[in-house]
């Protein structure tokens, strides 16, 4: 009996996601298009921007590395907000947003780590150092993977949602640690140069391409996130319909 009531409840829940699906269908092409245009402009600006006096051509990897790192943190922040949405407001889409964001965030974090170590090899002479910034981002990556594993392991969406929300909120402690790690500890990684209280220390000729790229990747992130949410909603619908079909066959057989 509890199973059939769960089916009905999830069907009632689908009323709202239906509107969301329509919205997502309209937004995705626009977001994708804007992301493509911004990234194209950003790449052009990035390659025509002056090279760094010390770092030479390698500085250009900054234009993708920094947006990846920002998005890694922004995605986690979004997941933490979704977790609040699940636990406090009990919004049915919040847990879909959390689950869909985790793989996207994990990929951006991995890209930040990879581009970082490609940048670090010529600058520091090694692929990897265990300093505070790098280690805390690596821990973030592990947390993403842990959340993915948890959401995949639990079959019941409602229970998986609460468990993932709680672990996401606990893990949020890591985000300020990442942000301020370069200030709190003396690290090899350079300190923040864009988001500072006393204004950016980076030269405008380098700052503009970076901002355009960051915006482009943010749009790309939202495109991917919307698509992933859409997939997740569809996946849940298929699963709900399969359960309904099993029940119906039972009733016909009896």
């Amino acid at each position: 009996m509890s199973q059939s009531s769960a089916t009905i409840r999830s069907f009632a829940d689908l009323a709202n996601p239906t509107r969301f699906l329509a919205l997502a269908d309209r937004l995705v092409p626009w977001f994708g298009g804007i992301a493509a245009v911004l990234l194209a402009i950003g790449l052009y600006m990035g390659f025509t921007a002056p090279e760094d006096f010390q770092q030479g051509i390698t500085v250009r990897i900054m234009y993708i590395h920094v947006p990846f790192a920002w998005l890694a943190m922004m995605c986690y922040t979004l997941m933490a907000l979704s977790a609040l949405g699940t636990l406090v407001w009990r919004h049915p889409l919040a847990d879909v947003a959390l689950k869909a964001a985790a793989p996207v965030g994990a990929v951006f974090t991995a890209l930040a780590l990879i581009t970082g170590s490609i940048w670090g090899k010529p600058m520091w002479g090694t692929w990897w150092v265990w300093d505070a910034r790098l280690t805390s981002v690596f821990v973030l990556f592990l947390m993403y993977l842990g959340i993915i594993a948890l959401t995949r392991a639990l079959d019941d969406p409602a229970r998986a949602a609460r468990a993932a929300a709680i672990i996401t909120l606990v893990g949020f402690i890591n985000i300020p640690i990442i942000k301020f790690s370069v200030d709190w500890w003396n690290t090899l990684h350079q300190p923040a140069s864009v988001f500072r209280l006393d204004g950016p220390t980076i030269h405008p000729s380098l700052l503009w391409p970076l901002l355009v790229m960051a915006l482009g990747f943010t749009m790309l992130f939202f495109t991917l996130h919307l698509m992933a949410m859409r997939n997740e909603i569809w996946r849940r619908r298929v699963s709900a319909m399969q359960r309904v079909e099993a029940r119906r066959a039972e009733r016909q057989g009896a």
Binding site: Q3, D155, S239, Q242, E245, A246, R247, A249, E250, G253
Partner: peptide, 18 residues
């Protein structure tokens, strides 16, 4: 066994009798 057409469903979704 009266389960025709249910072959594609995950086994876990079936009831005890099914």
């Amino acid at each position: 066994v009266g389960l025709g057409g249910l072959d594609h469903l995950p086994y876990g979704y079936l009831s005890t009798g099914q």
